[in-house]
Design a protein around this nucleic acid. Structure first.
Lengths: 242, 242
DNA sequence: CGAGCCGTTGAGGGGATTCAAGCTCAGTGG
DNA sequence: CCACTGAGCTTGAATCCCCTCAACGGCTCG
């Protein structure tokens, strides 16, 4: 009887099933890897579930892992030197977050859960090892960096200028793309909407109330809402024309 | 007499001197390469000089090259669907721009010269070839992506909210870091300041005039200015306290 | 039940926009 | 040489949007 290698893979390791059945496997970072590679690494990947408002990592701390978002919405926050918080970006299903850790750099934002969030925690050393052999993985990594950059710039162009009502409509249009299986979207607290759009809590509240009265938004209990993408698009057309 | 290899390096190739004497060589993308590697590639790199307001590349066009900024300031612009222009980021000496071309993706912004700009044009194929052999180069690439992302988020956090005067002060503080050899900074046109800070041309003009009267800014002919970093910092302190 | 958080709404003031009118200055052509 | 032109900058006055300060109601917790 032969001796098992130290890292003998156990087909019944709990993470093995989770990885092979992962619904976002194709679109996630490791989507370029084959079954063989995937089998070797799943023991190093931890799946975790966090509650709304739980921090994932904090700005400035040394990072040992990157994370793939399997479900939910994550926000990135910064604090200006005067102490006011600003939300600079959102991430959703399939996005890779905390990539700066791969460069031995401290995390550059506070990452916080908006909704309940399911994550895969991927140690940096794992990516380093795989990257040395797998050129495709490196390309995939760079692609994700570019997507994040693109997202940040689009956020700046769309959500940081213009009348408040227009900005809120654009924000809701984006949130609609993060809708969960039941078609519900995460509706930020009013103060959070303010932090995203550069408004005060009161102004955000007034605008949301207005949209609710117009029937564009249906507020549901538990920080969620139902909204009609087509009606939003129509409202955006009207407000753009102005 | 032996036959020269096809790619025999010519020590007197005009770009050879330019590369080996490049003052930003250590900090630029190819800073990780040794002399030997550098000698092999300089024939593929073109140095070019562009005038203010000349476009470098345009959003959506297929890119065949990335560029290293050797001197001057470059701005990245986007146009919202309503047609108003927004400047989302700046790049200066030592920065790599157009990295998305390496992923066979179209450029995601309009890149335009603010000042006279000196660039090194680096074909994508060159980076691809070197990257296969040089792991350090790939790391360097990813680092630059992260820096760009960080810059975009910082811009969003600092320049997109708060009183207009404070935003202008912060913008000028950043421009001061792009000062040229003579200690002069590029001063954007008023309309451009508006596009950066989400203001109108008139408001930008009023604020700049106010700072000029306060002696914080000295406007010079030719879209440039002289400003005192320490005085700016002091003014920022005052306005932050408020 | 009171405390505290979140959301809502009102009144008032201030800051930015809008709409205008001049200004300087470089380039052009009579 | 100088009027003419247009682009960029400045400034004024009126308006409006958003902020500030404030009070109140619903809701969850301890």
């Amino acid at each position: 009887m032969s001796i098992h290698p130290l890292q003998w893979r156990d087909p019944h390791h709990p993470q093995a099933d989770a990885c092979s059945r992962c619904e976002i496997r194709q679109t996630a970072l490791f989507g370029v890897l084959g079954d063989a590679d995937l089998d070797r690494i799943h023991t190093h990947i931890a799946g975790l579930t966090l509650a709304p408002d739980e921090p994932i990592y904090s700005r400035g701390s040394a990072g040992l892992a990157v994370y793939t978002v399997r479900s939910g919405v994550v926000r990135f926050e910064r604090t200006t030197d005067q102490g006011d918080r600003r939300i600079v970006r959102l991430a959703g299903k399939g996005d890779l977050i905390g990539q700066e850790a791969l460069l031995q750099r401290p995390y550059s934002d506070e990452a916080v859960c908006c909704t309940e969030v399911q994550l895969c925690r991927i140690p940096c050393t794992l990516v380093d090892d795989l990257g040395r052999a797998q050129g495709a993985l490196l390309r995939e990594l760079m692609l994700r960096w570019q997507v994040a950059l693109d997202e940040a710039e689009a956020w700046l162009a769309e959500l940081a200028a213009g009348p408040a009502r227009l900005r809120l409509l654009r924000l809701l249009r984006r949130l609609a793309d993060h809708a969960d299986a039941a078609g519900q979207v995460w509706l930020p607290r009013r103060e959070e909407i303010g932090a995203m759009l550069g408004l005060t809590e009161e102004t955000a509240s007034r605008l949301v109330s207005a949209l609710r009265r117009e029937g564009l938004v249906t507020v549901l209990p538990g920080r969620s809402a139902r909204l009609d993408p087509q009606a939003l698009d129509a409202a955006l057309q009207v407000n753009n024309a102005d």
